[in-house]
């Protein structure tokens, strides 16, 4: 049995099965809180803890899947390229808005991390929490955070954006459709963008444009701010 558990096939099968269950559940109830990634994560962690199978055994197969994070990030250039033409009229406000958002997110984490004494590792893990997972997990690793904590924080952030974005925009009187899209994409990456697309075409386009740019800004700015502190 050990030979099976320590073969790459085990981790790959477990991941596929858990993600399929997560996808089915999330499609059946169609609720934003039922995120397939979170469901699959809970299922696998629960399974490993119950059976006593180690994380190392799971990762023999899991690492094969994680290698694909690199091409998965590279192709994010395609939605960015498709939306670049929609930048034309308001490119200055949009770029400045995304930069403001990225800095706001970083500043919140740094300030409250210090205030609540979260500790260096945890603060660094939360720093890239507003950007898309393939970028956030590598930025986290680069600045000395724990990628798995970052991934969970990013998912919670995305769900928050998807659930609360329309209400926040209304409450804060953010009425311009371009500003709404930029706000949602910058703060809550692809998960928020799925909601932005439901609000309107302009919001969806602006939100998906903001994902890649916010990720790029954060990847550049976060290490600089950390080294300056």
């Amino acid at each position: 049995m050990n030979a099976i558990i320590n073969s790459p096939l085990f981790g790959i099968l477990l991941s596929l099965a858990a993600f399929e269950i997560g996808t089915v559940i999330s499609k059946k109830w169609r609720h934003t809180l039922l995120n397939p990634l979170l469901i699959a994560n809970v299922l696998i962690v629960g399974f490993l803890l119950t059976t006593g199978i180690s994380l190392e055994s799971y990762n023999v197969g899991g690492n094969y899947i994680a290698v694909m994070l690199s091409p998965a990030t590279v192709v994010l250039a395609i939605p960015l390229y498709r939306q670049i033409s929609s930048l034309k009229k308001y490119w200055k406000p949009i770029l400045a808005g995304i930069l403001t958002g990225s800095l706001t997110s970083i500043a919140c984490v740094l300030f409250f991390g210090k205030l609540l004494n979260l500790g260096d590792t945890l603060t660094r893990s939360l720093l890239p929490k507003s950007i898309t997972i393939p970028m956030g997990s590598v930025v986290s690793e680069q600045i000395g955070g724990i990628p798995s904590v970052t991934i969970i924080a990013i998912t919670i952030t995305g769900i928050t954006g998807a659930v609360a974005a329309p209400a926040i925009c209304k409450l804060c009187r953010i009425k311009h459709s371009v500003a709404q899209g930029v706000a949602i994409g910058t703060a809550s990456h692809a998960l928020g963008t799925s909601r932005a697309m439901e609000i309107g075409e302009v919001q969806g386009a602006m939100s998906s444009l903001s994902i890649g740019l916010a990720g790029l800004f954060t990847a550049i700015v976060a290490p600089i701010i950390l080294s300056a502190l």
Partner: peptide, 10 residues
């Protein structure tokens, strides 16, 4: 593709 890295949370 983020599922395996997220399991390291345990």
């Amino acid at each position: 593709f983020f599922l395996p890295p997220s399991i390291a949370i345990m």
